[in-house]
Amino acid sequence: MIRFENVTKRFPDGTEALKDVSLVMPAHQLTVIIGPSGCGKTTLMKMINKLEKPSNGKIYIDEQPITDLDEVQLRRSIGYVIQRIGLFPHMTIADNASLVPKLLGWPKEKKDARIRELLELTGLSPDTYMERYPLELSGGQQQRVGVVRALAGDPNIVLMDEPFSALDPISREQLQDELRNLQQTIHKTIVFVTHDMDEALKIADTIIVMKEGQVEQVGTPQQLIDEPANEFVRNFIGIERIRQKRAFGDKKLKEFIHLFDTEWQGEAQTIPADSTINEAFHQLEKNPSHRLAVTAGDRVIGYASGRDLLKAALLKEEEVAQ
């Protein structure tokens, strides 16, 4: 868990990037910090690995103040992915990815096994890519390596600074999906900065909305859409999106069967396919980790997660019609 306590950041020219921010980023969750440019979101994130230092206030990781920690050691224990990727062009993919394990002094076998495992996880075949150089890869592939590099030292916390915004729309969508899937395996505490609300709604467990150095609202994607705290948040999410979501709330589950998984091993509660989306949300609220087994008669026709429902609600009319 990362906790900010009355953190203020004043730059030498007098501008205040952060004004008395207090918040908590829960462990093992993906927290997205979002806001217009200049709102202080990147500054906030960079304070976690001491790339920026607060002018006032304190930051705790698992209740330990980070001022007690050596900055080099701290950074080696935190994964870091940046927008401009920043792979080292003179090193092979394997060398790039194994940088932090090397700094940590891992033995070679452990290092290699770890890199192979992570490359597999991100869909890059180790045998093909390990000995290649960054400039031989596409942007999307490079950023996958960027993610592998961040995860290589097995950090508990991973910071991601607009990691997908420099990519083309298709790669971006792919990497968002992959990150979501990856997170379900690795359960890291991820702090993800973006200015793209679609991205935030898609991947976040918790969203922190910021404006001019202050936190406007903290909540789940669902909460943000249902109960935006103020006019700014409402506008930032987009009136259109909220309206769509409301209208969709009354639609029936059976219209969205194609979005749901057909198999599910975990816990599930049954719900008739005739129920509305709103009813489904309501039922899920009590046990967000469960899935809904959507039934038609006695037969289960699909398993829906809260995220699937949200996706359904955010889909455009024409996409549903198809």
Partner: peptide
């Protein structure tokens, strides 16, 4: 040298000499 490469290095905990 591209500043993003340096930033990545710093962020991953490389010392100035490294």
């Amino acid at each position: 040298v591209d500043s993003s490469t340096i930033e990545a290095g710093r962020g991953m905990g490389m010392t100035r000499t490294q």
